[in-house]
């Protein structure tokens, strides 16, 4: 078992289960901040699994979400992204401009924030799928710490704010209180930054933002500036973010969201002069482990040593589109026409849990993977939610699984780690961690 056959990986069952939401394992290493690399222009934050023992939010979860709930939320997230992509492509879903752009005669903030729902769809009550990883940032002067969802799939950073004029969901940490920060300021309606927002309004001269997700979740409030502390040695003065006074949706108990997309309001774009629009992340294999989120030139050094793939920017201003070209299973390139990947394109999204493939690509992957597993005699198991290729590994300590590699334009290759090939709901249900889109055009 110590020597897997060629093009196979050994999957340790012991390693798989700390990744489950029902884990009671302790944190491998407490989150810490540190400089790294040769360049001082790189700053590092710690990423932890939202439901793992390293998460500041973990203690708040009396009942961790089930695998079914996590996967259902992930399906909502994927559908939300499909919706945003498709509506942007057709023009139907272009960001709405608020009708409330009157200047000083605007109603009081409370009334504005309440009435703003007129331009928003009714909440379906479905989750955005807040992603499984969080980072902790400091906000204000003196800085208070907030645990926020880390999201490369959206732009505007926001936190729930005092006095929470309309409604806030329950969060683990105290609400951010602008009155306690000496560096807080609202962005004025006349400021160019206000126009950077996809959805904006005006109340009493103060810029209002709206962040609306495809599933009906949203945050509305004042667009503001304050000092954002990324680490103990690095802060961003005048960072523009949403001070949320009306926030609804299942955002877990996070204080808000850190937007890492490519739009004007995102953190990488706002800090372009400081970090050069460069950042990198690493997500830990186990929920008991820690990863990192780096900003700055040093974070790209390791990638430059390897092959990179072009970021395809013509498809829209927000998502990180890349060109997927193929899949290898057990070292063998699957026979999938290039058009299968090119038809709809591919994005990289830190907030989606399970990789979604065009139906034809998934079908080919599943067939090859299942054939390799059958050849080794592994017993199949019932599906788990959207995962349909599952195995019963009861009583096994290690399992040999075929390698899976995702190939991209320019020669970049993602040789998926064993922890990323399988999703373990239980020892008797360990599933191939990929799913198909409903339609080849999705």
């Amino acid at each position: 078992a110590r020597h897997p056959p060629p093009h196979h990986l050994m999957l340790s069952m012991e390693d798989m289960f700390p990744a489950g939401p029902s884990s009671s394992s302790s944190c491998d290493a407490p989150p810490r901040e540190h400089k790294h690399g040769a360049t001082s222009s790189t700053t590092r934050m710690t990423i932890v699994h939202r439901h793992g023992p390293c998460s500041p939010l973990a203690a708040a979860h009396r009942k961790p979400p089930s695998h079914g709930e996590i996967l259902a939320a992930d399906q909502n997230r994927a559908e939300s992204i499909q919706h945003r992509v498709s509506t942007t492509a057709t023009g139907r879903g272009k960001p709405k401009r608020s009708r409330r752009q009157q200047p000083s005669s605007a109603p009081a903030p409370a009334a504005s924030l309440s009435s703003s729902t007129a331009s928003l769809p009714a909440s379906s009550g479905r989750a955005l799928g807040t992603g499984n990883y969080v980072v902790t940032v400091g906000l204000g002067t003196p800085a208070s710490r907030y645990t926020v969802v880390f999201d490369t799939g959206s732009d505007t950073t926001w936190v729930q704010c005092q006095p929470c004029v309309v409604v806030c969901y329950e969060q683990r940490e105290k609400l951010f209180d602008p009155a306690r920060s000496s560096t807080y300021a609202n962005v004025s309606c006349a400021a160019p930054a206000c126009s950077d927002l996809n959805i904006h309004g005006c109340s009493g001269g103060h810029c209002l933002y709206g962040v609306q997700y495809g599933d009906g979740s949203y945050s509305i409030g004042f667009f503001a500036m304050d000092t954002l502390t990324l680490s103990s040695y690095d802060a961003v003065k005048g960072f523009r973010f949403g001070c949320g006074e009306r926030n609804e949706g299942l955002f877990g108990e996070a204080a808000g969201l850190l937007g890492l997309g490519r739009g004007k309001t995102s953190l990488p774009v706002q800090t372009y002069d400081k970090y050069g629009g460069v950042f990198a992340h690493c997500l830990p294999a186990r929920s008991t482990g820690t990863g990192y989120l780096d900003f700055g030139a040093g974070s790209l050094a390791a990638a430059r040593a390897r092959l990179t793939t072009p970021m395809l920017t013509e498809n829209g201003p927000t998502f990180y589109y890349v060109g997927m070209t193929g899949i290898r299973v057990g070292g063998q390139l699957l026979s999938i026409p290039q058009s299968v990947f090119a038809t709809a394109g591919t994005i990289v999204d830190s907030g989606t849990v399970i990789t979604r493939l065009p139906p034809a690509a998934y079908s080919s992957l599943r067939y090859a993977f299942a054939a390799a597993m059958a050849a080794r005699g592994y017993k199949k198991a019932p599906a788990v939610s959207l995962l349909d290729t599952c195995y019963d590994f009861t009583g096994m300590s290690q399992v040999a699984i075929p390698t899976v590699s995702l190939l991209f334009q320019g020669g970049a290759r993602l040789d998926v780690d064993a922890s990323g090939i399988m999703y373990a709901a239980s020892a008797s249900q360990v599933c191939l961690a990929f799913a198909a889109n409903e339609d080849g055009g999705d």
Partner: peptide
């Protein structure tokens, strides 16, 4: 649209350079 999700990105360094318009993957980063 296809989506590369976070499960498949585990342990990989994923680097984004908005100016140069590239995405890089490097294994064993954490």
């Amino acid at each position: 649209v296809g989506i590369v999700g976070n499960t498949q990105l585990k342990t990989f360094g994923v680097a984004y350079d908005i100016g140069k318009k590239v995405v890089g993957f490097y294994p064993g980063a954490c």
